[in-house]
């Protein structure tokens, strides 16, 4: 059931990406997709009643392999979250640049302005 909910979140993001005409809304859609995928990956590594994959006196070396959740998806999702931030920074920089040049965030209007310039 939880997997289906993350799928739904993913699909909302894709739907926004396909139907929205505003650059900021497109960036927001990408963020939603990213969150959905990260959540799905971390969910797939969860163990029922699992502990964090940190070796302490409670979860000792001998018990950790039975009680811990999967650390591998977590490590990879950590990379993915940070890369997501840098991609977002690049996207916002491009959006600001487009706004400086064309004065709008609407991609239809931008396309019309580019066509005007050509003629």
């Amino acid at each position: 059931m939880l997997y289906y909910l993350t799928c739904l979140l993913f699909l909302i993001g894709v739907f926004g990406l396909l139907t929205q005409r505003n650059i900021v809304k497109l960036i927001i859609s990408v963020l939603i997709i990213e969150n959905a995928v990260n959540l799905f990956l971390v969910l797939s590594g969860y163990r029922e009643g699992g502990a964090a994959p940190i070796i302490t006196s409670v979860t000792s070396q001998s018990r950790i392999s039975v009680v811990s959740v999967d650390p591998f998806p977590q490590a990879m999702v950590m990379t993915s979250i940070v890369i997501g931030l840098s991609v977002l920074a690049l996207m916002t920089a491009i959006a600001l640049r487009i706004y400086h040049i064309y004065g709008t965030y609407n991609i239809d209007e931008i396309a019309a302005k580019i066509r005007e310039k050509k003629e």
Binding site: A51, P53, V77, L88
Partner: peptide
């Protein structure tokens, strides 16, 4: 959700990243 899933490192990272991305998006 990450906190509930036993991923405290991810939860911390996500909060920091989310704050920074909010700042970036508000700037836009």
């Amino acid at each position: 959700a990450y906190l509930l899933l036993g991923a405290p490192d991810l939860a911390i990272t996500q909060i920091v990243v989310e704050v920074v991305s909010l700042v970036l998006l508000i700037r836009v």
